Amino acid sequence: MSVRKFFSRIINWELWNFNVIYAPISPVWLWYAIRSRAFWFFTPSNPTIDFGGFEGEGKKEMYDQLPPEFIPRTIYIKHDEAFNKVLHILKQSGFEYPFVVKPDVGMKGILFRVIENEQQLKKYHERIPVEYIVQEKVDYPVEVSVFYYRYPWEKKGVVSGFIHKELLQVEGDGKNTLRQLIAEHPRAKYRLEEMEHRHQHRYERILPRGEVFYLSYAGNHNRGAKFTNLHHHIDDRLVEVFDRLSHYNESFFYGRYDIKTTSIEDLKQGKNFMILEFNGAGAEPNHIYDCNMSLGRAYGVILKHWKVLYRISRYNNRQGVPYWSFRKGRAYLRAAKKHFRLLEQFD
């Protein structure tokens, strides 16, 4: 890494390691655990999701609790299934290329792929070591994240964060190779090892002028997506849409929805949108990124959300939703981390 890039990482807190960012405020998290007399104080926050949706929950349990008309068509594939049977299942389900594949239990865009043909699917199926999902590719042009919470004793919730996502991409100029475009990209240049792993076989390709090449299809900050704050678009109509989603099963009180839609206006009207993910207690308020926000202000946003999470969890516990025991939570988290380490080896 060049000296210039090194100092850019030092100055820009958004490029810091996750643990480095959160270390100074971790005592607040511990304080909530002490007040709750439960190390895993957040587990009652979303009562019908394992571990409150903090980590390690399956997508199937999440999709099963959301309105089916707002979920992309999805099927579940066992990784050790015979490939011919997989093709038969896809045909019976009416799937056509391209479509999306990802682990049922995954995070940070690990092993998320867009499959264009049978050869790619075969390679993915033979490689992935866990159960995965095949999902209809949603081609709505606008991808957003909406952070929403609702206190269980209230009917109306709060949309605290609303951002637009732009996938990590470069645009060809008819002159430079993909390698050169990546090296000059404001975000991709900090991810050269990842870019080389994924795209080295295309590095010397010169993209025609105007051609867009997606370096990652995952709309995560962890995968280099660009976020634009849409806070000024938050209004009662938007809140009403997510109130209805929250009341659908009366169990999703805190988390972030990742959504594709035809337009912001359509989303506010409750139409033409699909929910790609719901992330529960472990969801980061990602509207702190790409908004020229100081680290101090970002800490204020995070701490506000932690307080909300604590209050929701405490209330649900008093209504009879138990906290997970330390032993149960530790075992669950260890299994989840082991699972993710396995995924990272194959990503």
Rank of each mutant, 00 (worst) to 15 (best):
S2A: 08
K5E: 15
R9C: 13
I10E: 10
I11R: 08
N12M: 04
L15D: 14
F18C: 06
F18G: 02
V28S: 04
L30S: 12
W31I: 13
Y32L: 09
A33Q: 01
A33N: 11
F39A: 13
F41V: 05
F41L: 04
T43R: 01
T43E: 03
S45A: 15
N46Y: 05
T48Q: 10
D50P: 00
F51Y: 01
F54T: 07
E55W: 00
E57Q: 14
Y63D: 14
E69R: 09
I77F: 01
I77S: 02
I89V: 12
I89L: 14
I89N: 13
P98H: 03
F99D: 10
F99K: 11
F99C: 12
V100M: 02
D104G: 02
V105H: 03
I110E: 04
R113P: 04
V114R: 01
E116I: 08
E116C: 11
N117Q: 10
I128Q: 02
Y132P: 00
Y132Q: 08
Q135T: 11
Q135V: 10
E136C: 01
V138I: 05
Y140I: 02
E143R: 12
V144A: 01
P152G: 08
K155I: 13
G157E: 09
V158G: 01
S160C: 06
V170G: 02
D173I: 01
N176R: 15
L178T: 12
Q180W: 05
L181R: 03
L181C: 07
I182H: 03
A183D: 00
A183K: 03
P186G: 07
R187Q: 08
K189S: 05
Y190R: 05
E193L: 15
M195A: 15
M195T: 07
Q200L: 14
Q200P: 00
I206M: 09
I206A: 06
P208V: 08
F213G: 09
L215M: 10
N222R: 04
G224Q: 08
L230T: 11
H232Y: 10
D235T: 09
E240V: 05
F242H: 00
R244C: 05
H247Y: 05
H247T: 08
F253W: 00
R256I: 09
Y257K: 00
I259A: 12
T262W: 03
S263P: 03
S263I: 15
Q269W: 05
N272C: 11
M274D: 07
M274C: 09
N279L: 06
N279V: 10
E284N: 03
N286G: 11
D290N: 13
G296H: 03
A298D: 01
Y299F: 03
K304V: 06
N316S: 06
N317G: 02
Q319Y: 00
V321L: 10
K328N: 05
K328R: 15
A331S: 14
K337P: 06
K337C: 13
L342T: 13
Q345F: 04
D347F: 08
D347G: 03
